[in-house]
């Protein structure tokens, strides 16, 4: 879900060198996106439990997936990954079962957060943040508010060249699939091909593909309509109140970022204690008020300052409404067709 730029990839690579080697007795290694949890979380966790923890950062799901698949998860105890990746890691037998007896704070979650399609009952993953993907726009620069994926893919002439789209494969494809009323996990080859063609045509209307700075393009006025994750649109809204977020009428995906314990972990008990700590109310409040993402943590969401949900309306979305949308699922062998389609879209002239 979170992505970083090339810069961050390079920095992350430099910072994680050697992190994998840290496997001292009793010490746990956690891999997360940079800035995706409170900076003092590990320090507080160690103070509260006496367990030493070390943070290693990854820039993308693909990066941590590559490392964990190559090393069978050795050197890592806890991973933060988006749900399709958690599902794939489970498929490969690289994640451990979550022992609910060791995570009493699971009770803080909404009941809906136990019914997610990728892992009903949270058997091998625990949701950390969730939300939707839609359109983020400058209400003061558009003649009419957008309400359809086609406003993005087949823009009116005044919007041409003022639009950005996400290029991360599953979300790029999801925009095209949803516009045609298809499932975000469509496996039919002909429909994948049609989606690819639709997205190749849509490329002509774009200012740029942007996964990391689209909200600042809205703020500067370079773009007026961007394909965005709701939490990131909030970063734009924070700087300019004319920026709005809308879920197109054809729907959205429900994205879920999760926490898993590696099967290779030598310290599963400590890893569970860490997850339990993260499930505490305070961490949830931090997530919602600092990274402006919705969290499945009911205790935290209930305790949010009402001013926050007034400023960022999408934070107030009810879990029941979220669950109406389909999650991105692990595609298994079909993933190859998706990446091939995306490679061809990006390569097209």
């Amino acid at each position: 879900m979170r992505k970083m730029t090339v810069t961050a990839v390079a920095l992350a690579a430099a910072m994680t060198c050697g992190a994998g080697a840290a496997m001292a007795e009793g010490k746990i290694v956690i891999s997360n996106w940079d800035g995706y949890m409170p900076a003092d979380l590990l320090e507080n966790f160690t103070a509260a439990t006496g367990i030493e923890a070390e943070l290693s950062v990854h820039a993308t799901n693909e990066e941590i997936m590559g490392k964990v698949v190559a090393g069978k998860g050795k050197g890592y105890d806890v991973l933060f990954v988006s749900s399709p990746f958690a599902e794939a890691l489970n498929e490969l037998g690289l994640v451990a079962k979550i022992d609910h007896a060791m995570t009493p704070n699971m009770a803080n979650l909404y009941p809906e957060a136990m019914k997610l399609d990728h892992d009903t009952g949270n058997g091998f993953s625990v949701p950390y943040a969730w939300g939707t993907t839609g359109l983020c726009y400058r209400s003061d620069m558009l003649a009419a508010a957008p309400d359809s994926w086609n406003d993005l893919l087949k823009p009116s002439s005044d919007l041409t060249g003022k639009i950005t789209m996400l290029s991360t494969d599953r979300w790029l494809m999801a925009a095209g699939l949803l516009a045609q009323g298809l499932s975000v996990n469509e496996k039919d080859a002909a429909k994948i091909e049609a989606t690819k063609n639709l997205l190749v045509d849509a490329k002509r209307g774009l200012l740029a593909y942007d996964d990391t700075t689209f909200y600042s393009k809205l703020v500067s006025g370079e773009a007026s309509l961007v394909h965005a994750w709701d939490g990131w649109c909030n970063y734009g809204i924070a700087e300019n109140a004319d920026i709005k977020y809308v879920i197109p009428k054809e729907g959205s995906d429900l994205w879920v970022d999760t926490i898993v314990v590696t099967a290779a972990s030598q310290n599963k008990e400590a890893a569970h204690k860490f997850i339990d700590y993260v499930l505490g109310k305070d961490v949830g409040i931090w997530v919602a008020s600092n990274i402006l993402y919705k969290t499945p943590n009911k205790a935290a969401m209930d305790a949010l300052d009402p001013a926050l949900t007034a400023q960022f309306p999408n934070l107030a979305m009810a879990p029941g409404d979220l669950l109406k949308f389909e999650q991105l699922r692990d595609l298994g062998a079909t993933q190859k067709s998706y990446t091939k389609a995306v490679t061809e879209i990006m390569a097209s002239q």
Binding site: V6, T60, E62, E63, L206, L207, K336, V342, T343, M346
Partner: peptide
């Protein structure tokens, strides 16, 4: 691949971007 990515906005790919994507996002 950095210049086309940042200044080309990802719309215009060079071979460096294509290779970078295969290793870092397509995992191919």
């Amino acid at each position: 691949f950095i210049t086309p990515d940042l200044l080309g906005g990802g719309r215009l790919q060079m071979v460096g971007n294509l290779i970078y994507d295969q290793f870092l996002s397509a995992r191919d």
